[in-house]
Design a protein around this nucleic acid. Structure first.
Lengths: 197, 197, 197, 197
DNA sequence: AATGAATGAGTTTTCATTCAT
DNA sequence: TATGAATGAAAACTCATTCAT
C-alpha cells in the first residue's frame, strides 16, 4: 500500500516526476515551486525529499529519461541495415516525431538545461554531445561515400537540423494542420535535399 | 550631468540596459536579481525604478531593441532590387551574422521570452510573427516563380531556418573555427540548397 | 511540541495573533511591519506565513474573533426572557463593557477596517450589518409596543449608540475615574432616556 | 502667472491641499503617496516641498482648517442670546451638518490623527480638547440651571454626542434617505431627549 | 515511508526626501 | 518658483530545505 496513496496505483516517485515535468514545461523551472509539485502529485514535501535529493535532481531525472530514450532510438536507426540516406532520413524524421510526442520534455530540455549546477550540466552536455556525434557520423559516412554533398561541414549540418528540432516546442501545436509524421517527413526531406550533391 | 555619475559618460538608463542584457544572457532572467543589475550599472535600486517600471520592463526593452533592428535589416534585404534567390540568401545570411554579433540579445530572446507577462508576451509575439511573415513572403515569391521548390510549405521552411538561428546561441563560440560570416554563408547555403527545385 | 518553542506553551498562531493585535492597536495596521510582529511573537517570518496567508489575513482573524464574541453576547441578551427595555439596556451596556475589556480589538476594528481588501471588507461589513440589525430589531420592538418613542428612526438610534461605542477607544483610559461598568451604565442610561416616549 | 500653471487659476498650495484631502480621505494617509498627491494637483514633487515641509505638514494643514472652522461655528452658537437648550440644540445640530458637508475632512480627522508626530498630535489634541470643553460648558450650564438632567457627567454626554458625529463618516451617504439637516435634527433631538430631567 | 512546522536568506518594489540646476 | 534624477532604508512576501516525530 505504501507508495500508492492515491487511487491511481502509480508509485510516488513517478507521480512526482510526471507532475514536475508538466509544471516545468508550463511555467519554467524557476517559476515552479516545490510546493506546487507536491500538491500536483498529491504528496507532501517530506515525501519528495525522501525520494529526490533536491529540486534539481528532479530536473536531471527528466533529462536522463529523455536522453536515454533518444539515444536508444538513434542507435536503432543508425545501425539498421539500409543505405545511408535511408538511415539518416529515418533518424532525422524519428527525432522529430518523438520530440513532438514529448513536447513537454523537449521544452524543458532546451529552456532549463542551464539551470543545472555546473557539474550536472557538464554531464548532460556530455551525453548530448555523444548523441550529436552519432548523428554526425551518419552524415560524414554519406559525405565520404559521395551520397551527400560535402559543401557544408557535417557539424554545421547537425546543428542546422537540431536547431529546427529544438524550435518545435516554440511553434508546433497538436491542433495545427500537420500531423507529427507529416512535419517529420518535411523536415527530414529538407535535410536530405540540402545534402544533395 | 546628473545622468552620468560614473566616468563613462553613458546615461543611466543605457547603463542599466547594458548591464541587464549581459546578466540576463549569462544567468537567465529569473536568476538575475535587481540588486545585481544595479550593482553592475553602478547605481541604486531607486534609480532603476525611476527609469523602468519593473524588472520585466527592462526585459521588454531588450526585446524592443532587437526586434527593431532585425526588422529594419530584413526590410532592406527583402526590398532590394535583385533576383529573389539573391535577396533570400542575403536576408538569411544577414540574420545569422547580426544574431551572432548580438548573441546576448539572442539568448535572452529565445530563453526568456516566456517570462514576460501575457500581454507583453502577446505584443512581442505579434511583432515576431510580422517578421516571420515578411520572410515567408520571400520564399513564397520564389516558389510561385518556380525558382524554389514548393515541396515544403513556406511556413515550415521559415521555421526550419529560424530554428537554426535560435540554436546559434547554444553552440556558437567566438573562438571557434568559423567566422560569423562563414557560418552565415553555410547556413544560407543549406537553406537555398534545400529549396532547389 | 514544535508549536511551542518559547516558554509560554502557547501555540505559535495564537502568539502571532496576540502580538499583531497589540501592535495594530498601538501603531495602526500600516505602521506595523511583519518584522515587528514576528519579533514580538518570538518566531520567524516563515512561521507567520506558514499559518497566515498574508498580513491582511492576520487582521481579518482579529475581526473574526471580535465579531463572533459580540454576536454571541448580543444574541444572549436580546433573546432573554425579560421586558424589552431591560433587554435593550442589558445589551447596550454589555457591548460597552466588552468593548472596554477589549479596547485593542476595538481600536483596530474602527481604525483599520478599511485596510482590508474589498472582498474581505465586504464580508466583515456584512457580518457587522447583521449585528446592527439584531440591535435595531430590539429598538423597533420597543417602538411598536409603545415602550420607546418612535420620534427617531431605529436605524439612526443604532448609529447614535454605536458611535459612542466606537468612540470609547479614543477617550477611555483604564486609570480614569469611571469603571467599565459605570461607563456602560451611563451610556445605556443615555440611550434609554433618549428613547423615553 | 506663477502659482497657477493650470487653467483653474487656483494657487498651487491650495491645489495641493485639496488633492491631499481627497486622497487621504479615500485611501488613508499611509496609503497615499506624495507622488499621487502631486499628480492629482498637477505639479511636481519639488513644488510640494517648496510649500510644505513634509507630507505630515499637509495632514496638519487639513486639521488646522477643520479645527478653525468648527471652533468658530461653535463659538457663534454657544455665545448666542437664547435659552441654553436652544443654544445646545443649535450647536449640536450644526456640528452634524458641517461634518456631513465636509465628510472628507472628518474621515481624515478621525482616522489619521494618530499618524501625526507626537508633538503635532499633542497640539491638535489640545485644540480639540478646548473645543470639547466649550461644548461641555454648555451642558453644565443647563445642568446647573436644572434645564438638563445631571444624572450623567457632562463629560460623558459630550463624548456620547461626538461619538455619533465621528461615526457619521462610516455610515452617512449623500444619496441616502435623509438630508444632512434631517440627520442633524434627529441627532440633536436624541441628545436633548437624553438630557431631559 | 512520510509529515508539516519552522527556518533564514532571498526576492521585487515603494517611497519620502534631497539637491543641483 | 520649480524640476526631476537619485537616494537608501524599509516594506511584504517566497521558497528550498531541514528535522523531530
Amino acid at each position: 500500500m505504501a507508495r500508492t496513496t492515491d487511487g491511481s496505483g502509480t508509485p510516488v516517485p513517478q507521480r512526482l516526476l510526471a507532475a514536475a515535468t508538466r509544471l516545468f514545461a508550463e511555467q519554467g523551472y524557476d517559476r515552479t515551486s516545490v510546493q506546487e509539485i507536491v500538491e500536483a502529485a498529491g504528496v507532501t514535501k517530506g515525501a519528495l525529499y525522501h525520494y529526490f535529493g533536491s529540486k534539481e535532481d528532479l530536473l536531471q531525472e527528466v533529462y536522463a529519461r529523455v536522453l536515454r530514450l533518444q539515444q536508444e532510438r538513434l542507435d536503432a536507426f543508425a545501425g539498421a541495415d539500409a543505405p545511408v540516406e535511408e538511415r539518416l532520413r529515418g533518424a532525422a524524421a524519428d527525432v522529430v516525431v518523438t520530440t513532438i510526442e514529448n513536447l513537454d520534455d523537449a521544452s524543458i530540455f532546451f529552456r532549463s538545461m542551464h539551470h543545472l549546477s555546473p557539474e550536472k550540466y557538464k554531464q548532460v552536455r556530455g551525453e548530448r554531445r555523444h548523441y550529436h556525434e552519432r548523428f554526425r557520423a551518419l552524415i560524414e559516412e554519406g559525405q565520404r561515400s559521395g551520397v551527400f554533398s560535402d559543401a557544408t561541414p557535417a557539424d554545421l549540418v547537425v546543428d542546422y537540423h537540431f536547431g529546427s528540432v529544438h524550435h518545435l516546442s516554440t511553434w508546433y501545436r497538436p491542433d495545427g494542420p500537420l500531423s507529427p509524421q507529416q512535419v517529420a517527413d518535411h523536415l527530414a526531406d529538407l535535410l536530405l535535399r540540402a545534402l544533395r550533391p
